[in-house]
């Protein structure tokens, strides 16, 4: 099991729960990588659930064997894609056809959950009614507050902005709209004085 307990932080930092089967005619599950494990656990709670479920899965390279097991749950619809971006048109389509009562379950990395959460809230579901469960990598999706570029999969603090090259400090300050944490220049006062990057949560 790849569950990580994030330490308590500021209110801005999202927190995640564990998925519970809820009543509803239709269920949408969006997962990446080890997020598949959370769907497997969820399916084990409720035998009738998967027959009403649409699963959208992005293996991201670390889904070894997990795709097979997800398919084995026999969801009503199953989609697997190479990246989150590739899955977005499908997610939008499913949400635009959906009705009240749809249950949304997001699981896997923070970047996936945050972005999929945005799609679901834009479709009219209150964020507090969307379930999430973190699994797998603790890598973050970061926005450079200076150039506004997004750097995916950040695992160290500080890190170098993939767009403008500034050395950025990893903050817990989160933007739901951007589905990203904020990265702030760490050596603005004293250019070049950059602490050695350390792995997040190590």
């Amino acid at each position: 099991m790849s569950k990580f307990q994030f330490p308590e932080s500021i209110a801005s930092r999202p927190t995640y729960g564990s998925l519970k089967s809820r009543p509803g005619k239709a269920h949408l599950m969006i997962a990446d990588a080890e997020g598949a494990e959370a769907i497997l656990d969820l399916a084990a709670q409720d035998a009738g659930l998967m027959a009403k479920s649409h699963v959208i899965y992005i293996p991201s390279g670390s889904g070894a064997g997990l795709s097979e097991r997800l398919r084995g749950l026999k969801p009503a619809q199953y989609y697997e894609g190479p990246s989150y971006a590739a899955a977005v048109p499908r997610i939008r389509r499913v949400l635009s056809d959906a009705h009240m009562g749809l249950q949304v379950y997001l699981c896997g990395t923070e970047g996936l959950m945050g972005q999929a959460m945005n799609e679901a809230t834009a479709a009219g579901i209150p964020h507090s009614a969307i379930q999430t469960e973190h699994r797998g990598s603790i890598a973050r999706r970061m926005q450079c507050v200076h150039c506004k570029g997004i750097t995916e999969n950040v695992t160290t603090d500080p890190f170098v902005c993939a767009h403008c090259g500034l050395n950025l400090f990893v903050r817990d300050h989160y933007s739901r709209r951007l589905a990203a944490f904020q990265g702030v220049c760490i050596d603005a006062e004293d250019p070049g004085n950059v602490p050695n990057p350390v792995e997040l949560y190590k």
Binding site: H99, M100, Q103, G124, P126
Partner: peptide, 29 residues
């Protein structure tokens, strides 16, 4: 009902409870 629909109920207590319970059973937030 399409996603993003809101329901509002005003009436006797029994009706209000009925709407809240039924909506929850149908997966409404």
């Amino acid at each position: 009902q399409p996603l993003g629909t809101h329901v509002y109920v005003c009436g006797p207590k029994g009706m209000i409870d009925w709407v809240h319970t039924t909506a929850a059973e149908h997966g409404w937030p």
